[in-house]
Design a protein around this nucleic acid. Structure first.
Length: 856
RNA sequence: GGAUGCUUAGCUCAGCGGGAGAGCAUCGCCCUUACAAGGCGGGGGUCGUAGGUUCGAAACCUACAGCAUCCACCA
């Protein structure tokens, strides 16, 4: 027997381990159609947060649902080494102990990183277990696994041989703290307050001075020219002359290019090719020299003379001070401008000329764009996110993939120690003669291969053949660029298939005030704490049902609580059914001939619910599916049928049918809630007779059209309405709910035995009569209900007149609509039928109303 | 500069072409053996503004306003 209350921790205890032990999460039933998902692999950087819950619970719901629908479901779990993110964490930890990675050296540092990985992978496993994820542990992967590493090498070498990977000297984003290159999307731009320095440049051979403004004076040692716009009248006479660089006295040519914006700053722009991508382009166009002024830690190089060795900001301050002293500072302006910060170290990124490895994106992007135009396009839900992918692909730059880190896939390029000749190969050359490239690959390079490398590619394994392409991917809109796009182009290029047929995009979870959860605000929420307080099922239910796909949602204690209350409701409804069935109950199929009106009613509603919920589940609309089920559970089942069954059960003739009905309804409710809340569902399922070893072996409820009865629903609704009207009547007449009252129904009862329900739930004596009686009345189609009481005729008359008015208004509304040729010819049939039946009903009501008025 | 989303009850949000919904809050009545973490009943909204399409608009289109987010640029 179930307890009177749902206690999440007791329910959760032991279930997950038993599911794993029984092998329910292990895929491979060849008799069924495959359905597969790969997990968005969490980084081994720390513990999981609510964002991961948003990524994984929809996956779990889909997998559990599809399994019940008869698919051979595979959910591949795994983790991501997360190169730069993890390395930053490990370095941070070492720094706390006063050690730098350079003290340890590559080998020893990597050992530390592997220790870190082991520890955090264990944490992640613990959390998957808590969340109840039905992942197939026999197929778990890590991005640095041997198999995945081999695949990464294969991909690199293939792209290199195809000319799609090249080494080049270009301006890249440099993180001086982590001392590595970054790709464009690993740089976050924020509007920072800064200073705009206006310097005076002496024009050679003239008294004239040119004012040039810059935000980064420290780069002036690398200046090679000053540019103006050729159309700028102010400067035309200066083009071809020279100016003196106030930082070091070098003479710089004044050149003209339309790139310069006449209205920005002073209209004259200094050109520093080694530290600005646009300046670099100009230098190529005009064959200007390229001079680097900073090293990899953003300290000034010897070219900066007395400033050499200073940090970039130290240098800026000292240099501005010196220029001011010698009279070449015009003025300084405060300005807000967008500054690039490293996604991981948060320090200001330095654009810098550097030799790096790049992926040539254009051909790969074009393939994606072509695919997305055709019938085989990856389908996005919601649709609009498809545009995020294509827009990015249309404007993509080449991808800088080399990182000057140690934690990651080392680039398979080898250099001859003597000749310097380079070979790129999947197999190591003779390492006595060669050294390997020091750099590792961007972590997204390997995660971009995730959907197929996890299944064994490039080997043609059985899993790859069976489960690839995967069925669906669930992820946040924030990593469409980082991850989704890369999986799509890598997959198309290497497997000629899209990696997944559908992508379900969710929003981000914010705090209760709607702010982003972040470390610096300290407003992050640990899912483990939430689970301890409300149970994992409430968390799962809350996070998947309180939002619309693709939109952000707020964390809400209130809604977690109400989720838990809902589960408690289902718990207690099950408890009630359990009590009614009694011990040794043997489930029997519904005997359709024996059904009473109320049974027909609830079963009809149940079938409609099954149909609607399934339809929403199929399109991953979990919010909508759950709210349909919720309404059924509360309004139709708990508040109505279940209550009515208390009376029905007293009639021994009805009892068996009622039991069978209660059993079927509660069982299907449990099966429908199960994908959302597997722990409580398993517990409740097991408490019912006829349970299998686990709910995981059950099928999803099937829609049974033969149980749908609109007529029964209508009659049930009348009873529902009567209960509500009479209760409301009592309340508005200051009567206690349990005050006795006399009701008269004319001309007959909607169904046999209705009096018993009135007696029990309205404390009413009821009689059925052909004659109207004095008192207030309610109309239900052809039935009238009188509340027999002493009431003066005038008041009654007034009420009836009001009712008449209302009915006339409704009737004329319907008639107007039905006589509108536009409506009759264009509206769907059901709408017209509905309107006609409303009209009929109101006409009947009006007739009854008029009859009564005559008698008063 | 380009793009996208949001604006619905006091609060948080669903609904997205056929007569305004949920949770919480609020008011009234109830300890009725499924559930007081509950039950029953009630109050509360010209669905951001202005036009348009339609027999019919909260929903579709256009413009505007406010609030978010993303991309690009910023010498």
């Amino acid at each position: 027997m179930l307890k009177t209350h749902y206690v999440p921790s007791e329910v959760e205890e032991g279930k997950y381990d038993s599911w794993v032990e029984k092998g329910y999460f292990t895929a491979g039933d060849k008799s069924k159609e495959p359905f597969s998902i790969v997990i968005p692999p969490p980084n081994v950087t720390g513990k999981l947060h609510l964002g991961h819950v948003m990524d994984t619970i929809p996956d779990d719901i889909i997998i559990r649902y599809k399994k019940m629908k008869g698919f051979d479901t595979l959910w591949v779990p795994g983790t991501d080494h997360a190169g730069i993110a993890t390395q930053a964490k490990v370095e941070e930890k070492l720094r706390a102990q006063g050690i730098s990675r350079y003290d340890l050296g590559r080998e020893a540092f990597l050992e530390k990183a592997w220790e870190w990985k082991k520890e955090y992978a264990a944490t992640i496993h613990e959390q998957w277990k808590k969340l109840g994820l039905s992942v197939d542990y026999t197929r778990e992967r890590f991005t640095l696994d041997e198999g995945l590493s081999k695949a990464v090498k294969h991909v690199f070498v293939t792209l290199y041989n195809e000319g799609l990977i090249y080494q080049g000297e270009r301006i890249i984003n440099w993180d001086p703290e982590l001392r590595t290159a970054l790709s464009n999307i690993e740089v976050n731009h924020t509007d920072d307050e800064g200073e705009f320095f206006y310097f005076l440049y002496d024009v050679v051979g003239s008294k004239e001075k040119l004012i040039v403004a810059t935000t980064r004076p420290e780069t002036m040692f690398g200046d090679v020219a000053v540019f103006v716009n050729p159309k700028d009248k102010r400067f035309q006479h200066l083009i071809g002359k020279k100016v003196v660089n106030p930082a070091n006295g070098d003479e710089l040519p004044i050149m003209a290019d339309s790139y310069v914006d006449i209205s920005f700053g002073t209209g004259a722009m200094k050109c520093t090719p080694a530290h600005d991508p646009n300046d670099f382009n100009l230098s190529k166009k005009y064959a200007l020299p390229v001079i680097k002024v900073m090293d990899e830690t953003a300290h000034l190089l010897p070219i900066a003379g007395k400033y050499a060795g200073m940090d970039r900001y130290e240098c800026r301050e000292a240099l501005v001070e010196d220029i001011k002293k010698n009279g070449h500072l015009d003025h300084i302006e405060k300005m807000v401008h967008s500054v690039g910060h490293s996604e991981r170290s948060h320090c200001v990124v330095e654009p810098m000329l550097s030799k790096q490895w790049f992926v040539k994106m254009k051909p790969l992007a074009e393939r994606v764009l072509a695919q997305q135009k055709g019938p085989g396009a990856v389908k996005f839900l919601p649709k609009r996110f498809a545009k995020v992918l294509t827009r990015w692909m249309e404007n993509v730059d080449d991808w800088c993939i080399s990182r000057q880190l140690w934690w990651g896939h080392r680039i398979p390029a080898y250099y001859n120690k003597e000749t310097g000749e380079m070979i790129v190969s999947e197999t190591e050359p003779d390492m006595t003669k060669y050294v390997q490239d020091e750099d590792v690959l961007d972590t997204w390079f390997s995660s971009g291969l995730w959907p197929f490398t996890t299944l064994g590619w490039p080997e043609k394994t059985a899993d790859y053949e069976r489960y690839f392409p995967t069925s669906v991917l669930v992820t946040g809109y924030d990593i469409i660029f980082f991850w989704v796009s890369r999986m799509v182009f890598q997959s198309l290029h290497f497997t000629d298939e899209v990696p997944f047929k559908e992508v379900v995009i969710h929003g981000l979870i914010r705090d209760e005030q709607g702010r982003k959860m972040s470390k610096s605000l300290g407003n992050g929420i640990d899912p483990i704490d939430v689970i301890a307080k409300y149970g994992v099922d409430a968390l799962r239910y809350f996070i998947t049902t309180n939002s619309t796909p693709g939109l952000d949602m707020r964390y809400s204690e209130e809604k977690l609580k109400s989720s838990e209350n809902y589960l408690n409701k289902i718990w207690n409804a099950t408890r009630y059914v359990e009590m009614q069935l009694g011990e040794n109950y043997e489930p029997k199929p519904i005997d359709k001939k024996s059904l009473g009106i109320l049974e027909k009613y609830i079963l009809s509603r149940l079938e409609e619910t099954v149909k609607k919920v399934s339809a929403k589940m199929e399109i991953y609309q979990f919010g909508q599916a759950s709210s349909i089920l919720y309404d059924f559970v509360y309004d139709d089942f708990c508040s109505f049928y279940l209550e009515m069954s208390k009376v029905s059960m007293e009639d021994p003739e009805k009892a068996e049918t009622v039991k069978a009905t209660l059993y079927k309804v509660i069982r299907e409710i449990i099966l429908m809630i199960y994908p959302y809340t597997p722990f409580i569902a398993e517990e409740l399922y097991q408490s019912l007779p006829g349970a299998k070893e686990s709910i995981m072996l059950e099928s999803y409820p099937e829609f049974d059209k033969s149980l749908v009865s609109k007529a029964a629903e209508k009659e049930g609704d009348i009873l529902k309405a009567i209960l509500k009207d009479v209760r409301n009547y009592k309340s508005s007449h200051k009567m206690a709910p349990n005050a006795s009252i006399k009701l008269v129904l004319t001309p007959k009862a909607p169904f046999k035995g209705i009096e018993a329900y009135f007696q029990r739930f309205l404390f009413a004596k009821t009689e059925v009569s052909k004659e109207a009686v004095l008192g207030d009345s309610f109309l239900y189609g052809k039935y009238t209900l009188f509340v027999q009481e002493d009431v003066d005729k005038e008041t009654l008359k007034k009420r009836l007149e009001e009712e008449k008015e209302k009915l006339n208004f409704e009737i004329s509304r319907s008639e107007k609509m039905l006589s509108n040729p536009g409506f009759v010819s264009k509206a769907p049939k059901e709408k017209i039928e509905l309107e006609k039946s409303k009209l009929e009903e109101n006409k009947t009501k009006l007739e009854t109303c008029l009859e009564r008025l005559k008698t008063l």
